[in-house]
């Protein structure tokens, strides 16, 4: 069995808003204010195998982007470890750390916000490989031309600035910049969300070509279940900082086990579902400042039992590579089998 390329072990990220000066003065008078803590990511375990595409789905505020950023090394986890090829990134020797950092690259949603508007494409794409000694300064032009060709851009455009491109082309520049340092893993954070459907299809096809040609591994963060279903081998569903279901893509979409996944899939508009009555999952996502006790989903869940209010539900195996953090559905499943 092959070893995972990226291992996420018990990773949490907490953002703390400290009591400000006015609050501290109020506390002297006995106001009893305390720090506000958001558990953006709460004890997540995930192993990504070389060459696979893992889709990370969930709604706004579920912590999927934060998790993606921690994997890409942009943000350190508050707790837990992220390992690259088995080694903890946080405690690596400097040389190894640099290698790991270059090997995991990130592609952002809004290329206009992540490309420097004052730099020409040649500098944007060519800067990092020169700095890291992958290519000499003299060879930069040729190297950038080769990288641009790979993502389907004409090398003649390398003298232009980001604002001179359309949205789809800018997305390609963002991909070229990430590819320029010869990564092994790409973290794509809503990389196609801002694009028109026909352009989105072009970029998704590009991702699949690159995967085949360069043997890349993807962590594909998206709120769009249709896109994830199309591209991912395995899917992790997040709700309020926790992974509630993890399974091969076919299994998630054919036999979702967690009530949240089930609800999410029912709501997805599909081309083949005509003139349907939309139903509504009750309520909204609770504030991550004050998540419900026990299973975070229980106040909205149609299957919730009193046991769901106590203690975090553990991930249980319900099928081949299929785990879910629900106390109710696995029991229903085994009752049906028996």
């Amino acid at each position: 069995m092959t070893a995972p390329i990226v291992t996420i072990e018990g990773v949490s990220k907490r953002f703390v808003k400290k009591v400000d000066l006015a609050g501290r003065i109020a506390n002297v008078m006995g106001a009893g204010l305390s720090d506000q803590v958001v558990r953006a990511v709460d004890g997540v375990d995930l192993a990504i195998m070389p060459g696979e595409v893992v889709g990370l789905v969930g709604e706004s505020g579920c912590g999927k982007s934060t998790l993606g950023r921690m994997v890409a090394g942009i943000m350190p986890p508050t707790e837990g470890r992220i390992r690259y090829r088995g080694e903890d990134v946080a405690t690596m020797a400097a040389g190894r750390r640099k290698e790991a950092d270059l090997a995991i690259q990130m592609i952002f949603q809004d290329p206009m916000a992540s490309l420097n508007p004052r730099m020409r494409v040649e500098e944007i794409v060519g800067e990092a490989p020169v700095v890291h000694g992958l290519v000499s300064a003299a060879g930069r032009r040729d190297y950038v031309a080769e990288t641009l060709t790979r993502v389907g851009l004409d090398p003649a455009v390398m003298g232009r600035f980001p604002h001179q491109f359309s949205g789809g082309q800018r997305a390609r520049i963002g991909i070229a910049r990430a590819l320029a340092v010869k990564p092994k893993v790409l973290v794509c954070d809503e990389a196609v969300a801002a694009l028109d459907v026909s352009i989105q299809a072009q970029v998704l096809n590009l991702f699949m070509d690159l995967r085949r040609d360069l043997d890349l591994t993807y962590l594909f963060v998206s709120h769009d279940l249709g896109v994830v279903e199309h591209i991912a081998d395995r899917v992790a569903v997040m709700y309020l900082g926790r992974i509630v279901e993890l399974a091969p893509a076919e299994a998630v979409f054919a036999r979702p086990m967690h009530p949240y996944t089930q609800a999410l899939l029912e709501e997805v508009p599909r081309l083949d579902a005509r003139k349907r009555a939309f139903s509504a999952l009750k309520g909204e996502i609770p504030s991550p400042l004050d998540p419900p006790e026990g299973c975070h989903f229980h106040p909205r869940c149609r299957l919730a039992l009193s046991a769901c209010r106590n203690g975090r539900p553990p991930l249980v195996t319900v099928g081949e590579g299929h785990t879910t953090a629900c106390k109710v559905t696995p029991a229903m499943l085994s009752a049906r089998v028996a």
């Binding site: 299809a201 096809n205 199309h230 076919e250």
Partner: peptide
């Protein structure tokens, strides 16, 4: 037809999407 072909869906998992070349 091109727009419909561009929508990622269950039945085309892992296949190339029928993209419309060029841009608006």
């Amino acid at each position: 037809a091109g727009l419909i072909g561009s929508v990622p869906s269950r039945n085309r998992r892992g296949e190339r999407l029928a993209q419309i070349p060029g841009m608006t």
